[in-house]
């Protein structure tokens, strides 16, 4: 019925999550960090849709959660990039270790 077993999807999204978290940890560019966050959100979404396809009591529940996650990711991207533009306008840099005005 379904082509491949559920655990393969979970492993796949785990790998995608790890790659995204690696990007968040090592990137200096703030836009790179935001793109890595998109990777993490997508990994979570694959899990939601996969579990709603394989184990959910009501088959549409997980997909509705995925819709909410997509909306929140879009809002986060819009606000995050607006903040990046604002910081760039004031500080002339988008590298996270150079934005250290609040560090004492």
């Amino acid at each position: 019925m379904n082509a491949i077993p559920l655990s393969y999807y979970v492993v796949f999204s785990g790998l995608l999550f790890s790659i995204g978290l690696y990007g968040v940890l090592v990137r200096r560019n703030v836009i790179g960090i935001l793109m890595s966050i998109e990777l993490i959100v997508n990994a979570a979404n694959i899990n939601l849709v996969a579990f709603s396809r394989y184990v959910a009591v009501k088959p549409e529940t997980g997909q509705i959660f995925a819709a909410f996650v997509i909306v929140l990711a879009a809002a986060a991207a819009a606000v995050g990039l607006a903040i990046v533009l604002c910081v760039y306008r004031n500080r002339r840099t988008i590298y996270s270790d150079e934005i250290n005005l609040l560090k004492f």
């Binding site: 559920l6 655990s7 396809r53 184990v55 009501k58």
Partner: peptide, 27 residues
């Protein structure tokens, strides 16, 4: 851990046809 877990699969969910109409009604 994932490969060792035995998931509690639901045959009804695996056979269900979730299209845009079902999602809209749920929303």
């Amino acid at each position: 851990a994932v490969l060792k877990t035995s998931w509690n699969l639901n045959p009804a969910a695996m056979a269900a046809n979730v299209d845009a109409g079902v999602l809209g009604a749920a929303f």
